[in-house]
Design a binder for these strands. Structure first.
Ligand code: FES
Ligand code: FES
Lengths: 142, 142
DNA sequence: GCGAAACGTAATCTCATCAGTTACAGTTTA
DNA sequence: TAAACTGTAACTGATGAGATTACGTTTCGC
């Protein structure tokens, strides 16, 4: 596919945890489901844990659990947890201040890109993990 | 800054063309303004040209012009022209079909990501290049 | 206690992408 | 014809991400 599977895989992880309920899921089990390496899963679990979405139990018989019910986790929570916060994508080199465009463009671009990003986040913020799990179940059965 | 300056630089280019009006702007002049290499500019001009937003005149005294007035170019036009069309960012490896989540998650993710992307594009689609140029002028003066 | 089973994290490898650059062939005008 | 452009192709170097290996730490069951 394309880059930044982080979000996709993080939702995948959250869905697995939602379905396994009280049973802690190990990174190795989740990795088998996602079809990747357990360390990749642990790295994302670590980010989700720092965001307070997931609890991890160490030691034998350990694993991970959702920190709160899937009705209270939005996809925006997940995206914020695992997508590193890049400021808006602007010029590599600062533009030439001798040119009127170079002098004035950056704040204008930041405003527009921020508004566009806010619109995207509004959609993710109103999508609950529980809804996603329901839809996944429907797809998997159908 | 961060990656994918393509959009930022493309808007920069379009703004310069809008301000230079009927005078064809050379890639070298634009590059001086953006503070980068002329070939980077020509690559983006080529993409803008394929999208019908820009006309380029070859030969001596050549250069580039907007193909239509800035009131009829949206930032979405520019974004579509220069951002390569990646399908939504999903798993690298196909998920494990033996797991219910793996079996059902992909279409659900595609729907959500597409809706979020549509919201972002709606904002860009209602922002005109002419508005951006006006704001740039205000920033550069103020 | 001991050992097996997990997590947490650092280090490395590989691969893709992209900006930047050089080079050069084709086009147009003076 | 010479100068000034555009349009690409090819190469380089930096950056970022996933995959993998490795190892220290924590915890449970016996
Ligand atoms: S600074 Fe980007 S074109 Fe003038
Ligand atoms: S966790 Fe991705 S396929 Fe089951």
């Amino acid at each position: 596919m394309s880059k930044n599977c982080r979000f996709a895989v993080a939702v995948h992880i959250a869905a697995v945890l939602a379905l396994s309920g009280d049973e802690p899921a190990t990174s190795e089990w989740i990795a088998g489901s996602v079809n990747t390496n357990p360390v990749v899963i642990r790295r994302l679990l670590s980010a989700l844990s720092k965001a307070g979405l997931v609890r991890s139990l160490r030691g034998s018989a350990g694993g991970s659990l959702l920190a709160r019910p899937p009705e209270r986790i939005t996809l925006l929570d997940i995206a914020r947890a695992v997508e590193e916060d890049e400021g808006p994508a602007l010029h590599h080199q600062p533009p030439n201040p001798a040119c009127p465009v170079g002098r004035g463009i950056q704040p204008v671009l930041v405003r527009v890109i921020d508004r566009a990003e806010a619109a995207r986040e509004a959609v993710l913020g109103t999508t609950l993990l529980s809804e996603v799990v329901t839809q996944i179940r429907a797809e998997a059965m159908g």
